[in-house]
């Protein structure tokens, strides 16, 4: 475990804490894409299939359980909680997220890490995570005003994978000396998708103005 990966995991955890905080304190999920959250449930479940078969460390197991648990809880809040579900921006959250699943699955069949079910699903989850933020970014462009917690959530979510890229560079030079095409290229694509959001987020933060993405 290196500092970059720990920082990445903590940033990822913080993003989820911020989202849960927003939903629980404001009893609202306005501006949050349910489709992105549903994709994350698929990402975590398909990535952590080895949760009960392979023990890496307490930290690893605990974090996997937290990520699966919180992502399911968020979808539950947005779909079933009597108050929160009424605040879901259903009309703006229109990205056809199910269209993302077949290409990622086909890509996982074509370029799996290994040709076994768990590795194909692991590759699928890596590819799907790279594009899972798209519905959320589209929704942000449509949101007239993005509240601070939602903006922070997306920023932290983008920052976590950027920290993972630093972790991969660090591990390449200090440990593995091995190229890992699947996570690296997916991670770069994933982080690149946040590029314009990062630009407008940092600009709004520096100018102390409300975050707005150009449509």
């Amino acid at each position: 475990m290196n500092i970059f990966r720990l920082a990445g995991d903590m940033t990822h955890l913080l993003s989820i804490v911020v989202l849960l905080l927003k939903i629980r304190t404001t009893k609202s999920c306005a501006g949050i894409s349910l489709k992105t959250q549903e994709l994350y449930v698929i990402v975590f479940i398909t990535r952590y299939l080895d949760l009960f078969t392979r023990y890496v460390s307490f930290y690893n197991t605990a974090m996997k359980l937290v990520f699966i648990g919180t992502s399911v809880a968020i979808v539950w809040y947005m779909r079933l909680h009597k108050v929160v579900k009424q605040t879901y921006s259903r009309d703006e959250d229109t990205f056809k997220h199910y269209l993302l699943i077949p290409p990622c699955f086909i890509l996982a069949l074509l370029i799996p890490l290994e040709f076994t079910v768990t590795e194909i699903l692991w590759s699928f989850s890596i590819y799907l995570e790279a594009v899972a933020i798209l519905p959320q970014l589209l929704l942000l462009q449509r949101s007239s005003n993005i509240d601070n917690l939602t903006g922070s959530y997306v920023f932290l979510l983008g920052a976590y994978r950027a920290l993972y890229i630093v972790n991969w560079v660090y591990r390449f030079f200090t440990e593995t000396h091995k190229i890992r095409w699947i996570p690296w290229i997916s991670g770069l694509v994933q982080t690149a998708l946040y590029a314009d959001f990062f630009y407008y987020y940092i600009k709004s933060w520096k100018n102390h103005e409300k975050l707005r993405l150009p449509a």
């Binding site: 990822h12 890496v56 690893n60 996997k64 890490l113 290994e114 692991w122 993972y164 890992r180």
Partner: peptide, 10 residues
Amino acid sequence: PGDGGSKDEL
């Protein structure tokens, strides 16, 4: 299994 080091990451 798989490429070195990826399976201890989240």
